[in-house]
């Protein structure tokens, strides 16, 4: 009986000692493997272009297409202008959002951030969210959305055309992450919520597209 107990104690001690090593192993995910579609590879071969660059060009084209919708909707909406009446700001924002939603009623997740663009973004962000510096970046992301004493934020729907919940904190997008991602027009922005990246229309306050598990 005594022998069994001693064996148990030794086994527990071994497990305790091994745990940090196992955790350390888990804390270092491998970089995502490039996933470039056959169509992009073929296009790259035909045009003697870098397939990675073509993925980003494709993203830019899709952003431009979205911006054409945004601008057309803005033309028909109340202009968002400086005012002392905050109700006007809200009304203009909601009117623009409604118009864009109507114009993109059939929009699906991945319409702008296609699978290969999502993969590219994950790879672009991977270096800044790894290691000691990466841990700090992740902590900063987490702090802004889950602030102590600030109450529980509403669940942000990972849904194209959804409204970003009013009153929820907008987590800071760390400058090092922004510097690694393609530039956006001022009407759009990247936000990272937990591990997901959201492409948000700032003026209309709607989720344009998203990348689940964008950071590891």
């Amino acid at each position: 009986m005594k022998v069994i107990r001693s064996f148990g104690v030794i086994a527990l001690a071994c497990a305790t000692l091994a745990a940090p090593a196992a955790a350390q192993k888990k804390a270092a995910p491998k970089p995502p493997k490039p996933q470039i579609s056959d169509a992009t590879r073929q296009k790259a071969a035909d045009t003697n272009a870098n397939p990675e660059a073509l993925v980003l060009v494709n993203f830019q084209k899709r952003v431009d297409a979205y911006m054409a919708i945004h601008k057309a909707a803005a033309k028909d909406s109340l202009p968002i202008k400086q005012t002392s009446n905050p109700a006007e700001i809200k009304a203009a924002q909601e009117a623009l959002g409604a118009k864009i939603r109507a114009a993109r009623a059939d929009a699906k997740p991945g319409e702008i951030l296609t699978p290969e663009i999502r993969n590219k973004f994950r790879r672009l962000m991977y270096p800044v969210v790894q290691g000691t510096a990466g841990r700090e970046t992740k902590e900063e992301l987490n702090e802004d959305i889950h602030e102590r004493d600030e109450g529980i934020p509403k669940k942000v729907p990972l849904k194209v055309n959804a409204t970003y919940p009013e009153g929820n904190p907008l987590p800071t997008t760390p400058p090092n992450v922004l510097l690694n991602l393609p530039k956006l027009p001022e009407e759009l922005e990247y936000r990272i919520l937990d591990k997901n990246l959201i492409l948000r229309d700032v003026q209309a306050n709607i989720i344009v597209d998203f990348i689940p598990n964008a950071i590891q």
Binding site: K81, Q82, T83, S84, I89, E147, E166, P169, L170, N205
Partner: peptide, 18 residues
């Protein structure tokens, strides 16, 4: 701040000029 919607920049009394 992180609790502010960027649309606050249109509120005249904040003097952010949009």
């Amino acid at each position: 701040g992180n609790h502010d919607d960027p649309s606050e920049r249109f509120y005249k009394l904040f003097n952010m000029n949009g």
